[in-house]
């Protein structure tokens, strides 16, 4: 990751924050948007649109690709007054969430980026990681301990 301007995040960070925004609860993005003051001037380049993305698997997990089935997804593109374009691509059919994801994607590319990274993206990523860890701990509790059986004989 390289940066020639300490005031902004680098393009390399963009897939990361877009992924975090896509996985975030819509309500969390709505709350965060309400907290953006003053709200920037922006307009829609592409209104929120629901569609499909084909999901692929691979034979044997790592062989020939095949089409598994589609998933719903929603996309939206916005432009800020300074010309910055933001894109939102999120699973599901929540148009408002795609719009908010696009708005934050635009803001994150500008001078507000580092601040938003700390105040929005980092906590959202931490929440997602915590949920993942919680599920993983439940799974780990169902691990079969064969050694215990052998010792008890």
């Amino acid at each position: 990751m390289t940066t020639d301007d300490n005031a902004t995040l680098t393009p390399a960070d963009r897939p990361y924050w877009m992924g975090v925004l896509a996985r975030a609860p819509a309500a969390a993005l709505e709350t965060a948007w309400a907290g953006v003051a003053p709200g920037p001037a922006w307009h829609l380049l592409r209104a929120p649109e629901c569609g499909l993305v084909m999901v692929q698997g691979r034979a044997g997990g790592n062989g020939q690709p095949f089409n598994l089935g589609e998933m719903t997804a929603t996309r939206c593109s916005v432009q800020l007054a300074d010309g910055t374009v933001g894109h939102g691509y999120v699973a599901g059919r929540d148009r408002r969430k795609a719009e908010l994801a696009a708005l934050f994607d635009a803001l994150l590319q500008g001078p507000a980026g580092p601040g938003l990274m700390a105040s929005l993206i980092a906590p959202l990523a931490a929440q997602a990681a915590a949920a993942r860890t919680e599920t993983s701990r439940a799974a780990a509790a169902t691990r079969v301990d064969f050694l215990g059986l052998v010792r008890s004989r």
Binding site: E49, G51, L52, V53, M54, Q56, L68, E70
Partner: peptide, 11 residues
């Protein structure tokens, strides 16, 4: 009824 945006990378 929905358009297809494209194909995702294999999972």
């Amino acid at each position: 009824t929905l358009p297809r945006f494209g194909t995702a990378q294999p999972v």
